[in-house]
Design a protein around this nucleic acid. Structure first.
Length: 393
RNA sequence: GUCCCGUUAGCUCAGCUGGUAGAGCAUCUCACUUUUAAUGAGGAUGCCGAUGGUUCGAAUCCAUCACGGGACACCA
């Protein structure tokens, strides 16, 4: 609109409007200004309204954008090359998870939405790119809750001629870099707790079972004793599990939630680390760590298994688990990946970080839906669908 | 998948032990022109989530379903 300013009889500076132009139709009224919208379902389904009404929601997504941008810059500055690998895979590999299935009509074959980019990124290491990363979506056909959305964003990066120990260092650097550029204090609240991001500690998994989890040392390394221990505590336990899997159970049950300040849990059993390199001194363990913050896993990293024969055996072990143990989320055999390794993959360390969960920590949000602009929601029934249903009945 | 809770006007909510729907804000009209959510007066607004049942009568009671939230389970 345009016009000229004037002062009213009561002294109020005003604009005398000469012309006015409507820019757009606005048919629906906005929610009330004072209370805004608080109904979570409405906020998620109509995020546009949520963004109009709630400044703190806008702040959260600005923060998310900055985190992604800084992450990209951090790795580029270290010489990493950003790449894009397929989202539709012929074999769902690189993680233990149920995939979404889709169909390619022209080729007449099923495809899986990727559950992880890992095996493709490692092929690129074979191809001679010595430091690569990808920030993108993964899809997992599993339950949804406060920390799981069917599609989520992760960064995975692979670094040739490095080990998991180098990854611990770069992870610390990465957090320091984020905190510096986001201008955050090193101690951040997360709900009722406080997390000190200047205190990164490191502890081997089996040691954590006793020192943090309070599991007696003799029990933590004995399959039968763990089963008895878990049963005594009324924890459901699958007796078909091997020692490594049972140790993983103990960790989930007694240790994970107690890891508040950033903690690298290292030396995972080989049975639960099908893609990680064995430790030189103890081949039952792997050169791997997971980073836990506020009782939650934030990152998973390891020196990569680059022995094609060992990798093939591990895949075969996974397939056996799939058929015998009922582990329907075990890895599938990826023959081309084995083939790639057979040409020689440099010793490499690789890591994945869940970006959504990281943003949750930095913004003190407790639901992954609050850091996703459009979280997955069941569609509301439409009139057409309602008709179809009544016809079926 | 299981359990608990929720679903009433555009938004935020009230509606006790069943008697047939309310407030504030928003919207509209008029007045005012003193703004920073909140001037005054007046008006309109609801398939009370859906379906079925109990009842003379259901927003209220019961059942089933849908969607959402939380917890657990599963899972990174």
């Amino acid at each position: 609109m345009s016009g000229f300013p004037f002062v009213t009889n009561k002294g109020e500076l005003s604009l005398h409007v000469g012309t006015i132009k409507i820019l757009t139709k606005s048919l629906s009224p906005l929610p009330e200004k004072f209370h805004g919208i608080t109904d979570k379902e409405l906020r998620y389904r109509q995020r546009y309204l949520d963004l109009i009404m709630n400044a703190d929601v806008r702040r959260t997504f600005h923060m998310r954008s900055k985190v992604i941008s800084l992450t990209r810059r951090f790795f580029e500055d270290k010489g990493f090359l950003e790449v894009e690998t397929p989202m539709m895979h012929p074999i769902a590999g690189g993680a233990n998870a149920k995939p979404f299935v889709t169909h390619h009509n022209a080729l007449s074959i099923d495809r899986y939405l990727r559950i992880a980019p890992e095996l493709y990124l490692k092929r690129l290491i074979v191809g001679g790119f010595e430091a690569v990363f990808e920030i993108n979506r993964n899809f997992r056909n599993e339950g949804m809750d406060a920390t799981h959305n069917p599609e989520f964003t992760s960064i995975e990066f692979y670094w040739a001629y490095k080990t998991y120990k180098d990854l611990i260092e770069i992870t610390k650097d990465y957090f320091a870099y984020l905190f510096e550029h986001l201008d955050l204090p090193t101690v951040l609240p997360y709900g009722d707790i406080e997390v000190d991001y200047s205190q990164f500690t490191e502890i081997p998994l089996i040691e954590s079972l006793t020192t943090i989890g309070g599991v007696p040392a003799d029990i933590a390394v004995d399959k039968e004793k763990i089963i008895a221990y878990l049963k005594a505590a009324h924890v459901d336990v699958n007796v078909a599990m091997n020692l490594g899997q049972l140790q993983g159970e103990l960790f989930d049950e007694y240790v994970e939630e107690k890891l508040i300040n950033p903690t690298f849990i290292t030396m995972y059993p080989v049975e639960i680390s099908p893609l990680a390199r064995r430790n030189d001194e103890n081949p039952e363990l792997t050169d791997r760590f997971e980073l836990f913050i506020a009782g939650r896993e934030i990152a998973n990293a390891f020196s990569e298994l680059n022995d094609p024969l060992d990798q093939k055996e591990r895949f075969e072990g996974q397939m056996a688990a799939k058929e015998c143990g009922g582990d329907d989320e075990a890895h599938e055999m990826d023959a081309d990946f084995i083939n790639a390794l057979s040409y020689g993959m440099a010793p490499t360390a690789g890591q994945g970080i869940g970006m959504d969960r990281l943003v949750m920590l930095l913004t003190n949000e407790h639901s992954i839906r609050d850091v996703l602009l459009f979280p997955a929601m069941k569609p509301l029934p439409t009139e057409c669908q309602a008709d179809e249903e009544t016809e079926e009945k």
